[in-house]
Structure formats: structure tokens, C-alpha cells
Computed example of a mutant assay.
Amino acid sequence: MFTRTDDKITTTQTVVIISCFMLGSGVLTLPRTLTERVKTVDGWISLILGGLIIMLAGICIVKLCQKFPGKTMFQFLKEIVGSWIGSCMCLLMVMYFVCLSAFEIRVMAEVTMLYLLEGTPMWAIVMSFMWIGLYLITGGINSIARLFEIILPITIVVLLICLLLSSRLFDIDNLRPVLGEGIFPVIRGLKSTLLVFIGFEIMIILPAFMQYPKKGVKALIIGTSIPLVLYLITFIMVVGAMTVDGVVRSTWPTLDLIRSFEITGLLFERFEFFLLVIWIMQIFSTYTICFYAASLGLAQLSKKNIRPIMYGLLPFIFIVALLPKNMNELFDFGDFIGTVTIYLFGLFPVLLLLITTIFRIGAVKEDE
């Protein structure tokens, strides 16, 4: 069947999917991209504000989806804005998820090639991960959720251990003065924080799969809070250890921080390998859920079987992943995706929610 909303997931699994989606390449790049834009030590304030804004945008999406129980946004959008506009918007969302999955798998390939498989052709790494991701998503949302439940706890433990061990390099003076140049640098940094919190938009499909859709807001808030706390700790530790100038000069500042120390006397003296392996799994998680969302959207839009569509999207993701010629173009591509997210999943759902509320479209009363 083209719809599989009978494949239910628990509230905990929903939380895990949201957190794994958000914990993509952001931990590796966030300190640099945010510090570049803010140009002060106040990026952590931008991070908190950005997380709160994302929560509000995600709540709007959840409230909208709760008006159409058992349906994803790909299915009910036509009921709100009409067939033609709804179909065009659904296609835009499918293209968005294709581009985001391509971006994530390219970042994963870049990190793998730079630190683990030096000299391996880019296309070989990308293609390998793509086929593994295809194998996973053919099992449906439940298979994805069960894998994420394994990956997320390991990711959190490894990241916190690595950051804790790097605390000997941390200097609180590198995070002073707070708001030394006023509030405007903090506002400038909001756009960079919104990119790393990409992931809330998966709620356009998850409430349809939830056993208890009414807990969608709770799942979103918890699922967003976990990456927010991890990103906050990472930013503070990296900037506190490397200073603003050091972070801006580094492409992957978090990895550089972990590589900058070693602990003698232990079985393992260098810890960046563990962080790399775990974070490749984390970026892979983001890629797979994006791939699944794009396939599901196209299947529900065309009312066709989802499996052939999964195979059909592979070459498109592969081509888009190899389009950026270098790291600068790749990061520009990521910024573009972040900008699209603001309009497509930030402002547009708010407009849809207003329309459904005013005209009472799809409204479900509690006593029904």
C-alpha cells in the first residue's frame, strides 16, 4: 500500500526520531557556523532562542496534523488549499527532503573521506551509504525507530564523555564578556541556529503514525530539548577551549577539539575515532528519515506503492549529493536548505493553522 499509517510507533520512539533527525551534522559544524555569524562569544544565547523558536514552529505543525487524525500533511494539504496548490506544495516538500537527505549524505561522505577513508572516491562512499539507507527504510517507520533507539543513547554517552575529557582545555574567560557588543550579534546568529535544529518538520508525518497522537506536542518538546542541551554543551565547551578565533579558523571545530588532547595510561588515548564513528551513524539517521519522508510524500501524492518510489529517488539523491564542488559550496547549500525550512515549515504551517481554525476545516472536537 502507498500509505502505512497502520505501522504505529510509541511516544518514546517519536521523541527518539525527532532527536536523531536534529542531531545530524550540526554538532560537527555548529560552533564554526554560529561563531562566524555572531562574531562574539554569545552564540549560546542565540542557540537557546533558536531552540525555543523551533519548538513553537513544531507545535504549530503538530496542532495542524492533529486536526486530521491518521493523515500526514501530504494527504490533508489538498483539503485546506485545494488540489493544485496542495499538489505543488507537496512536491516542494518532497524536493526539500530529497535535498536535505543529499546534503546529509554528502557531509557524511566528506567526514568519512577526510578522517577514515582517505583517498576513497566520493561517489563510492555516497553510494554505499545510500544503499544501506534504502535497505533500512524498506522496513517502514518501525524499523527506522528501532534502529534510532539504539543509536541515540550511544551517541549521547560518547559525546558527553568526549566533551568531559576535553574539559581540561576549557577556560571560562574565553566565554566572556556576555553581551559585550549588545543583543544584535545574538539576533544575527538566529539563522545559523535554525539550520542545526532542522528536524522538527518531520512532524508533518509522525503524528499519523503515533499510537497516541495527542501526545505529539510533548514528544516534540522533549525531542527538541535533547539536541538543544547537547548543542549547548558542545558550543560552550568548544568555544571555551578554542576561543572565537580558533573556532572560526577550523572546518570541523568539535573534531579538532577532541583531537587536540590525549589521555595516557588508558586503553584508548585518542577519542576522536569513537566520536566520528558514532556521528557518522547519527548523520546516517538523518539521511534515512529524510529519504523515507520524501518517498512517503511522493507515494501518497501519486497514490502509488512506496517501494518503487524509494528505488526511483536514489539516482536523484545521488546527483544532488555530488553537485557541490567543494566544502564552501556544500555549506552554502546547507544555508540555502535552512532558509527554505524557515518559510516552508516555519511560516507556511502557521498560515495553514490559521486557515483551518478560522474556516473550521478538519476540526475534531474532544467529545466526538
Rank of each mutant, 00 (worst) to 15 (best):
T243Y: 02
L323E: 13
L228W: 03
F271W: 10
E262K: 13
L100A: 11
T193Q: 12
S295G: 04
A208Q: 00
G297S: 06
G43N: 03
L28N: 00
V196T: 14
K67D: 06
T29R: 12
L114H: 12
E36Y: 03
R249S: 10
M89F: 15
E79P: 06
V248L: 05
L100I: 13
G246F: 12
T138E: 12
I319S: 10
V238G: 00
I53S: 08
R188P: 01
K39Y: 07
L296P: 04
L194D: 08
M73Y: 09
I221S: 01
R146F: 09
L152N: 07
I202W: 02
T357S: 15
T243Q: 13
S250D: 06
L313M: 11
V94K: 06
I80A: 05
L352W: 04
A241I: 05
I337Q: 03
F74I: 06
S83A: 07
A321M: 06
C65L: 05
R360G: 14
K71G: 01
I183Q: 06
A363N: 15
G50D: 11
L296I: 09
I309L: 06
T193F: 07
C99W: 10
G133Y: 02
F76C: 03
F336S: 13
I151F: 14
S260R: 06
S295R: 02
L314N: 11
K214E: 13
I309N: 08
P69R: 06
F274K: 09
L313D: 01
I61V: 12
V62A: 02
I156K: 13
L195P: 03
K215V: 00
F170S: 04
P121C: 06
W123K: 07
F76T: 03
M95S: 15
I226L: 09
C65D: 03
S101P: 01
L47R: 12
T286I: 00
C20Y: 13
E149Q: 14
P69A: 02
L276E: 12
L77M: 13
T234G: 00
T155K: 11
G312K: 02
G199W: 00
P227A: 11
